[in-house]
Design a protein around this nucleic acid. Structure first.
Lengths: 199, 199
DNA sequence: CCCTCTATTGAACATAGTTCAGTGATACGG
DNA sequence: CCGTATCACTGAACTATGTTCAATAGAGGG
């Protein structure tokens, strides 16, 4: 029987990812424990290290999936959006907000995982980020037709970062009173005001 | 001899804060270790817990000082700024950026410390944040005289969050190529564009 | 069916934060 | 100035964590 080992390893890998995904989503990145994983997956702790280099590798794998779902949600929102480029920006940003709110702990894990210093971001991260940037850059090109390409790149990154900051601080202090609607209002306020005097 | 104990405790407290401040600034929050602290301070590990409830308390104390320095830097930048309210916003935001860049690890520690879930932010945090918000709200009131007060609050928070997001993502991926000047350009771009069509 | 090779195991190790019984210094009454 | 009750300080021990690796079990070829 060829590949029985590889088969079992692949199954374990998938299983570990699903378990880790659930723990992160329900209890956050900080609640992920090697022994819990092994116990739930019905394997030894050491087995985890046969499949992933370390727990960070596993988290990065979960993050890749989370980021992909995030990208898909934003793309779907864009597909349903009207033609107006400003509205497209607002709707995508609010889709970003909704995803972050509905998958708060998983979304936090995207940024809370500590990369070894000096290590570059993984490829999937840059790719997925690039896709998001494209979604933003296209409407921006319509809104600001006269600007140089490098300025477009800067604009894109700046707007993404702004929306990210609004969502991040808004959700962080949810306890100290930033209602969901206010976050959406801030997003719309910034994007509309920003694009109001386009030229 | 009255208060010899209290005196020593106060001295140890101050000493621990200074050591922790240096470790966080030079090596980051993750490099803070109880045993290293005790060793450097010349006391037993247990002594730390006579002065601080736990290491998080100590980190929060360091963070309070960091946040205070940040506020002072922004205030100083504002004091030296011209009368034009848009310029004031840009200069303050770039002062925020400069502080974050020059005190990167200490600044990260402000947000990376994990609060127990459901626990409110400490008072000093809310106070210092309130001060920063005031700095922003004043020029905004000049730029957007016609808006309702609650909309001013939202605008203030939105702009702060936007700048924070730009700085956060800009510094995070310093390795993947966001030069300092670009961060300043993004800040100026967002703030100028945002205020360009004020009404 | 046996033998080799390797995937898997889980006890052990390294490194954390935190605790607490034992120890010694402090402050005060005489 | 001395004795003693008190309490702060000590640091070994406890708990919890990620990670490793010698021992084991099982797969696959002959």
């Amino acid at each position: 029987m060829a590949g029985k080992v590889a088969e079992r390893r692949a199954a374990l890998r998938e299983n570990l990812i699903l378990i880790a995904e659930r723990i992160i989503a329900q209890q956050g990145l900080g609640a992920l424990r090697a022994r819990d994983l092994a116990s739930e997956a019905g394997c030894a702790v050491g087995a985890i290290y046969n499949v992933f280099g370390d727990l960070t590798d596993l988290v990065l794998t979960v993050n890749a999936r989370t980021f992909h779902r995030l990208g898909a949600d934003v793309a779907e929102a864009l597909a349903d959006a009207p033609q107006d480029p400003v509205e497209q920006l607002v709707i995508m940003a609010q889709a970003y907000h909704r995803f972050a709110a509905e998958n708060h702990l998983a979304w936090r894990a995207l940024f809370d995982v500590e990369r070894a210093p000096g290590e570059a971001a993984p490829d999937w991260y840059l790719e997925e980020m690039g896709r998001l940037f494209t979604y933003i850059a296209d409407p921006l090109a319509v809104i600001f037709p006269g600007r140089a390409p490098d300025e477009h790149a800067l604009l894109t990154r700046a707007l993404f970062s702004s929306v990210h900051g609004i969502v991040l601080l808004g959700l962080d202090q949810a306890s100290s009173g930033v209602p969901t609607e206010d976050i959406d209002r801030m997003i719309a306020l910034v994007l509309r005001q920003f694009t109001a005097s386009a030229k």
